[in-house]
C-alpha cells in the first residue's frame, strides 16, 4: 500500500463534466462582456464614469 501512487488511483473526469466546463466558461466570458457593457452605459448615463 505504501508504494501506491496517486496515478494508480485513476478516476476519469466524465465527458459531461469536460463538456459543461467548456460551455459554461464560454457562457461566463460572454456574460462578462455583457456586464461590462451594461455597467459602462449605466455609469456613462449617470455621469459616474470617472
Amino acid at each position: 500500500m505504501s508504494n501506491l501512487h496517486v496515478a494508480e488511483l485513476f478516476v476519469f473526469i466524465p465527458f459531461a463534466v469536460m463538456k459543461w466546463m467548456i460551455y459554461l466558461s464560454l457562457t461566463g466570458v460572454g456574460l462578462g462582456l455583457l456586464i461590462l457593457i451594461v455597467l459602462f452605459i449605466r455609469d456613462w448615463k449617470g455621469g459616474r464614469l470617472w
Binding site: I35, L36, L39, F40, R42, D43, W44, R48, W50
Partner: peptide, 10 residues
C-alpha cells in the same frame, strides 16, 4: 480617486 464601477471592474 473617483473611478466608477464599469471602468474599475474592467
Amino acid at each position: 480617486r473617483k473611478v466608477g464601477l464599469a471602468l474599475g471592474t474592467a
